[in-house]
């Protein structure tokens, strides 16, 4: 998929999916993924370098590029951000899994090629474990998982999350606090036990 992901298509897909067309979701996922990649690698024609590299920016930008905002309902917007946030989760977690695998299978002394903006964080959460925990949370509180995806992987603020989920910011705050407490506890347990 190269130029086909223009905004009419995606807007159409969003509307179709919202209208109950289940198949539209896969197409959407692909389109959004492609767009995220294109934005990230600055491949777009006439594109200037200088993008912010945070997930939020990527997702927002993908939205602006792909969706005709005059035609969509807030619910479509919610779906878009939900999909993008889930994608970000998958991308980052897959990457973390591969890195782990590479490390285990390594054996050779690797010249760590320490680039400036490669993944790093002083207290970085182990994304693989986090992902497992989220999968467990999904079993009994899928709304909390959507919220975590939007907030953490999609980088949305409380207010944006509230808008996307169609609830009040106060609710998002409460639910976020709860999910965070639960996840933090599970993470602590999994690392100590």
């Amino acid at each position: 998929m190269s130029e086909s992901a223009d905004n009419t298509d995606v807007t159409q897909l969003l509307i179709a999916w919202n209208g109950g067309e289940v198949g539209a979701r896969d197409q959407l996922l692909r389109a959004v993924y492609e767009e995220l990649r294109r934005i990230a690698s600055g491949q777009l024609v006439g594109e200037k370098p200088g993008h912010t590299l945070q997930a939020t920016a990527l997702v927002n930008e993908a939205y602006l590029r792909l969706v005709d905002q005059t035609r969509v309902h807030w619910r479509n917007r919610a779906h878009f951000f939900g999909i993008a946030a889930q994608l970000m989760r998958r991308i980052l977690v897959d990457y973390a899994r591969r890195r782990q695998a590479a490390k285990r299978g390594g054996g050779v002394t690797i010249v760590e090629f320490e680039d400036s903006l490669t993944p790093r964080s002083r207290r970085s959460v182990d994304l693989v474990v986090l992902d497992d925990i989220l999968t467990r949370l999904e079993e009994f509180d899928s709304r909390a998982v959507r919220l975590v995806e939007l907030r953490y992987f999609g980088g949305l603020t409380i207010e944006e999350t509230a808008e996307v989920l169609g609830v009040s910011p106060a609710t998002v705050k409460r639910e976020w606090a709860t999910a965070r407490a639960w996840m933090h506890r599970e993470l602590t347990r999994s690392s100590s036990g």
Binding site: L36, R37, I39, A40, S41, G42, H51, L53, Q54, A55, T56, L58, M88, I91, L92, Y95, A96, L117, T118, P119, R120, S121, S124, V125, L127, V148, R151, Y152, F153, G155, R180, M183, H184, L187
Partner: peptide, 15 residues
């Protein structure tokens, strides 16, 4: 905890 974005730089990973 989780108040900062995930450690990995999304754009770097994607590209």
């Amino acid at each position: 905890f989780m108040s900062r974005p995930p450690g990995a730089d999304a754009a770097a990973v994607l590209s």
